[in-house]
Every structure is written in C-alpha cells, then in structure tokens.
Design a protein around this nucleic acid. Structure first.
Lengths: 115, 115
DNA sequence: TTAGTATATAATGATGCACTTATATAAGTA
DNA sequence: TACTTATATAAGTGCATCATTATATACTAA
C-alpha cells in the first residue's frame, strides 16, 4: 500500500460521477494547466452557454474548481485545496493534453487574457 | 509530466462514469485484493441478485473485470490487462479497504472458497 | 441611463440509469 | 428424472442527468 490517508468512498464516487462526463473531464484536463473563462469554453465545446455554465456549476459545487470574477469575465481554476485534488490530478495526467483546443481558441482570436 | 502513454479521453470518461456508482466502486475496491462470486456480493450489498448481476455486467462489458465459472459459482476478478487498469488501481489505492465487509461475510459463514 | 456583453438561473423535454419483479438458463444433487 | 441453488436476462418504473430555450443578473462602456 503506497497511500496513507484514505479518502471517503462516497465522496470519491461522486467525483467519479462528475468526471464521467466527457465535457467535464476535458474541462478539468484543461484547467489543470491554466485558467479559463466561461466564454472560452463556450467557443471550444459545441454547446450552449447555459450548458457550459451548468457543467462548471457542478464542478464548483463539489469543490473541484474555484471561480473568480475579473472585469466582465468569470474565470474558473483548478482547486488544488480539494481533498481529492491529488487523486484527480494523477488521473488527468494519463489523458492527452488539449493543446489543439487552446490553439483553436488562439487562432480564432478568442483567447481572453486578463492582466 | 510523469506519464508517457496517454489514454483515450472518451474511454476514461466511460470508466469514470461506471466508477461513479458507489456499489461498483466498492466492488472494484474489493476485487483489487481478491476474487468474489456473485452470491457473496449479494450478501454484502443490501440489494437484489439481479441488481448485483447488472452492475457486474457493466464492469465486464467495459472490460474492467473478468468472469470465470467454478462449479456452480461465477467468480469475478479484476482484469489487470485492461488499458486503464493501472489508472483504476492507482485510484482505488486512495480508498479505505473493505475488510469489514469481508469479515462480515466470514462471520456469517458465507464466504465461498473454491479450491 | 441605455445598450451591449458575459454569465447564471429557471423551466422543460428527452434520454439514461439503477433499481424492482418475473422469468429463463445453467449447474449440482437426490 | 425432478428439485434446488446460482446466475442472467427481460420488462417496467421512478428518478437523475444533460441538453435546450427563455429570462434574469452583473458588469462595462457610451
């Protein structure tokens, strides 16, 4: 056994359920490397803005992401303080990075930067 | 980045969806340390036999478990040949072992051994 | 203030999922 | 053979989930 602190099975299964959706799993993979605002996700996923907001809401409700408003945008970030953050990060490491998606955003001039 | 071979995101999300159910997640945790037959699971989870069979069917369909008939029983085992086996195993390591469940089975004299 | 942009919430509909009960199949035993 | 035990499959039901459209809220800029 190489892990000492054990997580709650119920909580882990809830997180797995959230990551069982392709859109949310992709979002988390992207958020692992940088923050994104809602409108960027709306451009990247072929889906309505409310659908995106609802996915982010679920991730936020369970604590996997944090939100912060910057000017007119709401940015979401990976919450590394979550109990299960390391578990989720390990899992995401096995997934292909989503560089093409980011490149696509930039190509369309839709990347939002807020400095 | 500490992982070289990347898994298919679609496939991983399907597996996460399956593990998003508490019963199946517990089953996988238990199967990580030893094989179980259907009737043992039926005793341990407060659930009908068809419900248990259906959960095991889903795990089998996606390839996470294998089945083998031994005399009148069907035993299920963790399939370590699956693409995502190492990912799933890593994940399960974070969960509390289910020793009490096994102890409960043995206390009731319901543990099946097939040698 | 008014208009425009970004996001969230509400209501709704279609589909999926996890159980149930009833029944079928398969193996073991008398 | 008939009976029992173990498991799988089928059909049905209630509830959850994921999308949609419509609308509300929040912020920015003119």
């Amino acid at each position: 056994m190489n892990v000492n602190t054990k997580l709650d099975l119920q909580e882990v299964s809830q997180i797995m359920k959230l990551l069982g959706d392709k859109t949310r799993l992709t979002m988390m993979k992207m958020l692992q490397s940088q923050d994104f605002c809602v409108c960027e996700f709306v451009e990247l996923f072929n889906m309505s803005q409310p659908a995106i907001s609802q996915h982010l809401r679920k991730l936020k409700d369970i604590g996997l992401v944090k939100e912060s408003r910057k000017r007119q945008w709401v940015f979401y970030s990976f919450n590394r303080d979550h109990d299960c953050a390391f578990l989720v990060e390990d899992l995401l490491k096995h997934l292909p990075d989503q560089k093409e998606r980011l490149a696509q955003l930039e190509a369309q001039g839709l990347r939002i930067s807020c400095d």
